[in-house]
Structure formats: C-alpha cells, structure tokens
Simulated assay, not measured.
Amino acid sequence: MKTIFFLLIVFFTTVTLTNAQTQEKKSRKEIRAERQTEKMKEIKNILKEKDFVFRPTHAMPMGGGSIYLNYSFDLKIKGDTIDSYLPFYGRAYHVDYGGRNSAFDFTELAEEYKMEKDENGYVVDFDVKKGMDNISFTFKISEQGYATLNVISTNRQAISFYGRIEAPEEE
C-alpha cells in the first residue's frame, strides 16, 4: 500500500513539473516576435528623443559601386548636435583651403530636424551648415533599425550610406 501511495505521489509530481515546463517554454517564433516588438519600441523611443547613433556598413557613391566600411565610422545625434565622422567618395566641386579632414567629419548644430512615420518605418530629415557648404541628411529607417542615409551637399556629389541605428553607448 505504501509503495502504491509513493508511486502515485511521484507520478503526480512528475506530471505537474512537466506541465509547468511546457507552459513556460516558448516557440522560436514567439521569441522572435517578442524581440522584434522590443526593437521597434527602442527605435521609436531613440528617434523621438533625438538620441541615436548611425553605424554605416556600406557607402554608395554616385559614380561607383558599394564600398564596405569598417565600424569606426558613425554619425551621432544628441538633441540638436550632430557629430559626424563619415567618409566621402566622389567628386568635390569646392574644397575649403587647407582642408585635410573628410567633408563629413564635423560637430555642428542641426537645422530643421523633422521626423515622420511612413508605411515602412521612419523618415528623418535635417540640414547642417558647415562653412560655405549646406549639407542635407535624409534617413530612411525601418522599424527594426536598418537605415539608409542620403547625403546631399552643395559642394560635393551626393552619397548614400547603409547601416543600422542604435542607442548610444553609456559613457
């Protein structure tokens, strides 16, 4: 009698533990959907706060093919301040005398910052005046953080960059 009672207790304990484990286990599809939802919320928040970093992986100049970039290049936006360290490939129509830095290596204030939601994600536009050069930046950002940056300058050919939008690293 004692062995039957003991076996019943072990059986019910095993069944309850198994049911609890299967209820907590989520499918890969559910886990991926949760991650995507979290990423969408993060992207929306950092764009609203105007506090994000664009890390380009490819540059696409007007006159040539795609150029792979390493991860040392970035464009940081914090409020109205733009800290750009991006390369330039293409034709320059006017260069400042003695200029040794890249055309897009600067820290300036953004003018006319606009963020709009569209059917595929977000569009962020702003302009920067650097000396005699007016530079227009247009981001097309997916809800998952992939972004294309189109840069149009009055003194240079247009260039595009492809990469990701991220939250800034804590210092």
Score class of each variant (00 low, 15 high):
Met1Lys: 09
Met1Pro: 04
Ile4Asp: 15
Phe5Cys: 11
Phe6Gln: 11
Leu7Val: 10
Leu8Phe: 11
Leu8Cys: 14
Leu8Asn: 11
Leu8Val: 13
Gln23Asn: 06
Gln23Met: 09
Lys29Val: 10
Ile31His: 08
Arg32Ile: 15
Ala33Met: 11
Ala33Phe: 03
Arg35Val: 03
Arg35Lys: 15
Thr37Cys: 00
Thr37Glu: 13
Glu38Ser: 06
Lys39Pro: 00
Lys41Phe: 07
Lys44Gln: 13
Leu47Glu: 07
Lys48Val: 01
Glu49Met: 03
Glu49Phe: 04
Asp51Trp: 02
Val53Asp: 06
Phe54Gln: 01
Gly63Phe: 10
Gly64Ile: 05
Ile67Ser: 01
Tyr68Met: 11
Leu69Asp: 10
Phe73Asn: 12
Leu75Trp: 08
Ile77Gln: 10
Ile82Arg: 03
Ser84Trp: 06
Tyr85Gly: 06
Pro87Lys: 02
Tyr89Leu: 06
Tyr89Asn: 11
Tyr89Pro: 02
Asp96Ala: 12
Tyr97Gln: 09
Gly99Arg: 15
Asn101Phe: 09
Ser102Cys: 02
Ser102Gln: 12
Ala103Ser: 01
Asp105Tyr: 08
Asp105Val: 03
Phe106Ala: 01
Phe106Met: 05
Glu108Pro: 05
Glu112Gln: 14
Lys114Cys: 04
Lys117His: 03
Lys117Arg: 09
Gly121Cys: 07
Val124Cys: 10
Asp125Lys: 15
Asp125Met: 10
Lys129Ser: 07
Lys130Pro: 02
Lys130Asn: 14
Gly131Met: 03
Asp133Thr: 04
Ile135Met: 01
Phe137Ala: 00
Thr138Phe: 06
Lys140Pro: 06
Lys140Ser: 14
Ser142Glu: 08
Ser142His: 01
Ser142Thr: 15
Glu143Thr: 10
Tyr146Val: 00
Leu149Gln: 04
Ile152Pro: 09
Ser153Asn: 11
Thr154Gln: 08
Arg156Cys: 02
Arg156Gly: 07
Arg156Pro: 08
Gln157Arg: 04
Gln157Tyr: 06
Ser160Leu: 08
Tyr162Pro: 00
Gly163Leu: 07
Glu170Lys: 14
Glu171Asp: 07
Glu171Ile: 12
Glu171Lys: 13
